[in-house]
Design a protein around this nucleic acid. Structure first.
Length: 950
RNA sequence: GCCUGGAUGGUGGAACUGGUAGACACGCAGGACUUAAAAUCCUGUUCGCCCUAAAGCGAGUGCGGGUUCGAUUCCCGCUCCAGGUACCA
């Protein structure tokens, strides 16, 4: 009677529940109970002091957008949570925090449209995110939460900026050094023996000259050395948005967001001297365990080339010369021209009167071209002769000077020496303009194209004739250095990072101006709070939004810097704040940093490869140079989770003779018989590609009386993989999945979908299998009436084998981040135990521990039902694997003939090879396949296979 | 163009160091239970041939070759897909 009434009750409470007889496993009640328990008991609070070894599992923290989490966002968080929970069971003190990268454009755009302060929008979005995250049962220590837009957080972002401002990079020591040391050096030795990474226009001066400088002159000079510095840079200025955009925010010459035109504009901008760290950023890649494509991307981004810089004198210009960078100094005798970027500073001076018209026309044409579209870049060769000649540094011969747009102003010196025999671009250029093409190696094959080979011996090359590549390079560098015409040089593609945005919703730069000189505010005045403004738009005079703040002056008199920091500022150091999120004396205490040191495992998307991950490594190295942190690299191991794509569903509306839509829809399998148009349909009313017709009528009231042509009584939808977006009706909210199936099912299903690193479309088909698994698991502990029924009997051999198989499997899988295979193995284990009718406490209790990282709620509940203290499962011990339970005495060998499997033969594992051969060859069934042919050889691999070769 | 991944049933995927390809799950088909449906349980499910069936035979991991007793796995050549990057001297 009780059972029946409880069923009845269940039906009343949850009429929408698909499985009304699920009287046993009530995921809603269980999950709510444990989430509350963990919060109330601060179960996942972690201490900065422990006898246990430390382990730091970090997720890339989200930007809290207004749309909330969709089902793709938590993929990485689930994986890292499984890993963190597993490490806790393995006896580690695990730091597993979460926070928000809460400065950013969408909140500001919303503020521009609605006038609502971005802080309010952000606060609401964070609350929504938190609720959604809590629903999934993550084991985050929320007491360490950080928000980059919180003044208590950005105080330290500003503080780090101040340290960067107050530092320079000393190449002799190969590290950053406080600027005071540079000032002290200037006072005693001037610029002598200063090896700094600095601007190109620094002056040389003696100690006396330095001392004679005014304070303003000193500051101006020092700015050229600081790691955070102000300089005029060409930026992507978007007038419509009133801001500067990063290169990756500009697509095809228009802004990625909104598609507004973008122009190149010179502006004074804060920059970060990341190029000082180029070599260390490159070297460090060898010491970290990151996915190869990511390492490769950073390597390409840094773009190191080893070569030489060579100076070509230009007699017509007196003492001025053209400097080129080349990676192939060995080809210098093959030079037939110098080619400059049209923007090169010497172009004006070099152009002769005769050539002026042509050159000007060409420059005008290039400008238009770059404005138009670089994507429409045809391989057309173009260029113009300046009329001037340079002198070849070794032969003294005249080398014509050209300009062409295939030479980029921003790379190297903006000028190249053209060697048509060795470089394809130079070859095309030379053949187009009829310049001579001189072979320089006896191994070169110039049949219509350049040959960049380094093999062979040099010819037509005077000084290096007959030499090999290595000999030639050494000889030439030595020679060029001795005549002052060149030197070995390393060039990097990476540029210094622009660090200012003309935006409101970001960290204010803690700088004010006094007589045009930027100065830091006093440390005691941190944080420099974002001022209130009446509108979140640039001022009428084109100044950033902060220019609207009333009476916003340092000490009431000095103007503040009006740009704010870029989106990556806060995320470049946030993982240290988690170590000691409440600390007030520093960004984290020395003790906390000394204990946690670095991130052991970092999980996030590969889209941050060259942004966040590069800048974070840079700031980390800087903080280490200054003695604030301990490790050269912040993220020891990194895993990229794949992107979850959308999977859209379609219905097919039949078209009439004129191509107009009718009120009839045809099922996917029959649509080829009709003229149809595909319409997106909400994936949430489609199950296994079968459309719920009633829901469809509600979804599209305009089709309430539509007719449906069905197949097998069903309307089957078509599907396609697209981006997940509202307009495509393919967004799935994790909350809906959790409501229907529970968080444990969601967690396991997201893992079950496939390898973590792989991108895949979200598809709810198949989630039932995981839900069924959890109910089956629950049933192991209960009798048919739903009462706990666990036996204390000793487990059987088969039961122990099933348990220890999964203990081993999960251990191996988690360590190699293969979470999908664990889920399958759990299913196999529960299937086996169900077949064995196993209800032994000794088995089930350990199984709870093994499954806990994947399905923490159901296992906590069962753990408690088994009589364990409530909520102690998170810190239980992972069961020890005992291989003896897996030992087999015999094995069913697949017996193959010439590699083709023909039969199975069960044999004891301790047989000697000769005995196995005998048993196999004497087998009657085998004779059929041998067809009387003589046996050449028998391959026997113990516990694997027997192969008879005839 | 270059760099990095990837391609396995109707679907998601498994096979970890060369050793029974398709585990596990979805879907589908059939059956049990039920007045019925849902849920649950059971059976089958790579394809082709043969066939009442059982059994059997053949093919098969994008395509073409190779190494090997044995290849989804290693080597060579190609096709397609995804991500990154692009006159980088």
């Amino acid at each position: 009677m009780d059972v029946i009434s409880s069923i009845a009750q269940k039906i009343v409470i949850s009429p929408s529940l698909p499985y009304t007889v699920a009287m046993d496993y009530h995921h809603r009640a269980i999950e709510r109970k444990w989430q509350q328990f963990w919060a109330d008991n601060r179960t996942f609070r972690v201490s900065n002091a422990s006898d246990k070894p430390k382990y730091y599992v970090l997720d890339m923290f989200p930007y809290p957008s207004g749309a909330g989490l969709h089902v793709g966002h938590p993929l990485g968080y689930i994986a890292s949570d499984i890993f963190a929970r597993y490490k806790r069971l393995k006896g580690f003190n695990v730091l597993h925090p979460m926070g928000y990268d809460s400065f950013g454009l969408p909140a500001e755009q919303y503020a521009i449209q609605t006038g609502q302060h971005p802080a309010i929008t952000t606060e609401a979005n964070i609350a929504r995110y938190r609720e959604q995250l809590d629903n999934i049962g993550f084991s985050f220590d929320w007491e360490r939460e950080v928000r980059t837009s919180d003044p208590l957080f950005y105080k330290w972002t500003q503080w780090i900026f101040m340290q960067l401002f107050n530092a320079w990079y000393d190449k002799s020591r190969d590290c950053a050094v406080p600027i005071d040391k540079l000032v002290a050096h200037f006072e005693t030795h001037g610029t002598q023996n200063v090896h700094a990474v600095c601007d190109e226009d620094t002056h040389f001066f003696t100690a006396d000259e330095w001392k004679a400088f005014t304070d303003g002159e000193k500051q101006r000079e020092l700015l050229k050395y600081r790691l955070a510095y102000l300089r005029e840079s060409t930026v992507n200025w978007c007038a419509a948005l009133g801001t500067v955009l990063a290169n990756d925010e500009v697509v095809n010459g228009v802004s990625e967001r909104g598609g507004y035109p973008v122009e190149q504009k010179k502006m004074m901008q804060w920059s970060m001297r990341i190029t000082a760290y180029a070599e260390r950023l490159l070297k460090g890649l060898e010491t970290i365990d990151w996915p190869e494509p990511l390492v490769e991307m950073q390597r390409n981004w840094i773009g190191k080339s080893v070569g030489a810089s060579v100076r070509f004198a230009v007699p017509a210009l007196g003492d001025r010369s053209i400097e080129v960078f080349t990676t192939r100094v060995d080809t210098i005798y093959g030079v037939n021209a110098l080619v400059l970027a049209p923007e090169h500073e010497l172009v004006g001076a070099l152009t002769t009167g005769e050539q002026k018209a042509e050159v000007d026309a060409y420059i005008a044409q290039t400008k238009k071209k770059s404005e138009l579209d670089r994507m429409a870049d045809v391989k057309a060769v173009s260029g113009a002769f300046t009329g001037s000649y340079a002198a070849h540094p070794l032969t003294g011969k005249d080398v014509p000077i050209w300009i062409a747009d295939y030479v980029l102003a921003g790379y190297g010196t903006g000028a190249v020496m053209a060697v048509p025999s060795g470089d394809q671009r130079d070859y095309l250029f030379s053949s187009h303009f009829g310049l001579p093409i001189i072979p320089i190696s006896d191994a070169q094959q110039l049949d219509g194209q350049a040959d960049p080979t380094k093999e062979g011996r040099y010819i037509n090359s005077d000084l290096i004739n007959g030499m090999t590549y290595a000999e030639a390079v050494d000889t030439l560098i030595t020679k060029l250095e001795s005549i002052g015409a060149g030197k070995a040089m390393i060039n990097y593609r990476m540029r210094d990072a622009i660090f200012g945005r003309q935006r409101y919703w970001g960290e204010p730069v803690p700088v004010y101006f006094e007589g045009g000189i930027p100065r830091l505010i006093d440390e005691q005045d941190l944080p420099l709070l974002l001022p209130e403004v009446d509108k979140y738009l640039p001022t009428e005079t084109g100044e950033p939004p902060l220019g609207r703040a009333k009476d916003w002056k340092y000490h009431g008199t000095f103007d503040y810097e009006l740009s704010t920091m870029p989106g990556w500022a806060g995320s470049s150091w946030y993982w240290y704040r988690y170590m000691d999120a409440q600390h007030t004396e520093a960004f984290a205490s020395k003790e906390a940093i000394g204990y946690w040191k670095d991130v052991d495992l970092y999980i996030g998307g590969s889209e941050h490869a060259t942004g966040h991950l590069l800048y974070s490594r840079f700031w980390n190295k800087f903080l280490k140079d200054m003695g604030y942190v301990m490790e050269e690299e912040p993220f020891k191991k990194l895993i990229n989770q794949g992107m979850i794509q959308g999977r859209s569903n379609f219905v097919y509306r039949v078209l009439d003779g004129e191509g107009k839509g009718t009120n009839t829809f045809v099922s996917h399998g029959l649509k080829d018989d009709y003229r149809t148009i595909a319409l997106h349909v909400d994936v949430n009313i489609v199950s296994n590609d079968v459309l719920n017709l009633d829901e469809f009528r509600k979804f599209r009231p305009d089709f309430a009386d539509a007719e449906f042509i069905l197949e097998n009584g069903k309307y089957v939808c078509g599907h396609e993989v697209e981006k997940m977006s509202k307009s495509k009706y393919n967004v799935v909210n994790p909350d809906d999945i959790i409501e229907q199936y529970g968080a444990d099912t969601l967690r396991m299903y997201e893992m079950f979908l496939g390898p973590l690193e792989q991108s895949k479309p979200w598809n709810t088909n198949g989630i039932e299998g995981v839900y069924k698994f959890l109910r089956k698991f629950w049933k192991l502990f209960h009798d048919a009436a739903g009462n706990l029924a666990v036996s204390d009997e000793a487990p059987s051999k088969a039961e122990l084998k099933a348990l220890h198989k999964i203990i081993k499997k999960v251990e191996e899988d988690v360590e190699r981040f293969s979470f999908n295979t664990s889920v399958s193995s759990f299913m196999i284990c529960v299937n086996e135990l169900t077949d064995l009718k196993c209800n032994k406490r000794a088995i089930l209790q350990e199984l709870c521990v093994v499954l806990q990282p994947y399905a923490p709620h159901i296992t906590e509940e069962l753990w408690e039902l088994l009589g364990n203290a409530s909520g102690t499962l998170s810190y239980a011990s992972y069961p020890a694997f005992n291989p003896s339970y897996l030992v087999e005495s015999e094995f069913a060998y697949p017996v193959s003939v010439n590699g083709k499997t023909r039969m199975n033969l069960t044999l004891p594992l301790d047989l000697a090879q000769s005995e196995v051969e005998k048993a196999v060859l004497e087998n009657e069934d085998l004779q059929r396949y041998l067809e009387g042919k003589p046996v050449k050889k028998v391959i026997y691999v113990k516990g694997r296979i027997v192969n008879v070769v005839v």
